[in-house]
Simulated scan of single mutants.
Amino acid sequence: MLKDVSFSAVVAGFIAVLVGFTSSVAIVFQAAQGLGATPEQTTSWMWALGVGTGLTSIGLSLWYRQPVLTAWSTPGAALLAATHGMTLPVATGAFIVSAVLITIAGASGLFERLMDRVPVAIAAALLAGVLTRFGLDAALAARGDAALVATMALVFVLGRRFWPRFAVPGVLLAGIAIAGFSGRIALAGVQWGWARPQFVMPEFSLAAAIGLGLPLFLVTMASQNLPGVAAQRAAGVTAPVSPVIASTGLATLLLAPFGSFGINLAAITAAICMGPEAHPDPRRRYIAPLAAGICYLLIGLGGGAVVGLMAAFPHALVVAVAGLALLGTIAGALASALAVEKHRDAAAITFLVTLSGVTLAGIGAPFWGVMAGAVALGVQHFRTSAPPPR
């Protein structure tokens, strides 16, 4: 394994964690506090999510020798943040219900059979739609911090020209250097100390199971695992879907009493670990989620200290490095989505609906993008016969 370790893969893993963590940690804290969690219990949530995500990313990537990155459910956290009038023990019982459903969906093979019916063009368009938002955010960040973003973009272009393997690490280092010299990395609020897990005895309620557990399951599967599998397939990753999904469900189940509301496949951050920027050789890219898993473990164990460190980076730096790191993956996904002419219209619809960010019935745009593309594909090719051989 040591011969597969590379600087670019390690940095890709760190960037994936930086992007995933900083874009969702505020929602997680809001969700915990909305359910009445104490500061100690909120820190326990970060411990459970960090340890669960870290161990599953490390274990699955090592077992399959492929880049398999997990994450906590950001849409799930948003759902929890919007939940009112529920106690933490009752919500913990709903976490367990959702985890059991995810485990069954994975172990039974139902989710994998569903994904096998999604055409490559639709999957690639879904991935492009999910990721393009980050590219747009990187460009828009220039409005508030033009010097930082423009310098990082210039370093990226030069890096792609002269040292392609180190273009993204160079962007990250350049951004940190500029932010550091301008005094914009805020370390004063960091509180050092190890996290201590807090056990919450779950209380089971039929109303909570239906009102929170089932929606949490649906949101996690539709908005996280579905684009996560699409990202893997678009990148040529062949790790089996069923045992991976079942593993995330079991990890959530074991850690739910400590605050793990949902561990699932990563999609956006996984793309950072599965692209050529992580390593030119696809067989050595599994090191990136391995490094990310170690970072997530440190987040979990470090608790509030790591939260403060990760939040110390300027927002413009985070969104710029994310957009630039995903540029190659976005281009590749769009090329795959539009390559086959008979799938082009359906792929374009999938891309646009996913990019729109529309949320209906509490389910995010990735699910509706696939549904829209599938309907378009079905209408266009319903009962069409194969062309005669030439």
Rank of each mutant, 00 (worst) to 15 (best):
V379M: 15
A376S: 15
H279N: 15
W47Q: 01
W72P: 04
L49H: 02
V190I: 15
P243V: 00
R117T: 09
V190W: 07
V307N: 14
L250P: 05
P202F: 07
M86R: 09
F367A: 13
A150G: 08
S44W: 04
L114Q: 08
E203F: 10
L69Y: 11
Y296E: 00
T238A: 13
G144Y: 09
S247N: 07
T87H: 01
Q198Y: 11
A177H: 11
Y286P: 04
A386F: 14
S242T: 04
A32D: 04
A121R: 10
T329S: 14
G357D: 04
P389T: 11
A347R: 11
F258E: 04
L126T: 08
S6W: 05
V229W: 11
L255I: 02
N264G: 10
L327E: 05
F199D: 04
A235F: 11
F199P: 01
F217E: 00
N264E: 09
I330E: 02
L127N: 07
A150N: 10
A376G: 10
A251Q: 03
T42L: 14
A167H: 03
T132N: 01
W45K: 02
L173V: 13
V244D: 07
A235N: 09
L60Y: 10
V97Q: 09
L218W: 10
I96H: 04
A208Y: 10
M274S: 14
G109H: 00
M46N: 12
S6I: 11
T350N: 05
A195M: 09
P75S: 07
A335K: 15
A239Q: 02
F258A: 05
P257M: 07
G180W: 11
A124F: 08
G13Q: 12
E277F: 13
Q224M: 14
F204D: 08
V237E: 05
A94W: 07
R233E: 02
T252P: 04
L324Q: 02
I349L: 15
W45S: 03
F111R: 03
V155D: 03
I287F: 08
L127C: 10
F261M: 10
T38C: 05
T350R: 04
G175M: 01
V120Q: 14
L360F: 15
I210D: 10
A239R: 03
S205C: 07
Q41D: 03
I210C: 12
C295H: 06
A179C: 12
L55E: 03
A337F: 00
A266D: 10
A186C: 08
W72E: 02
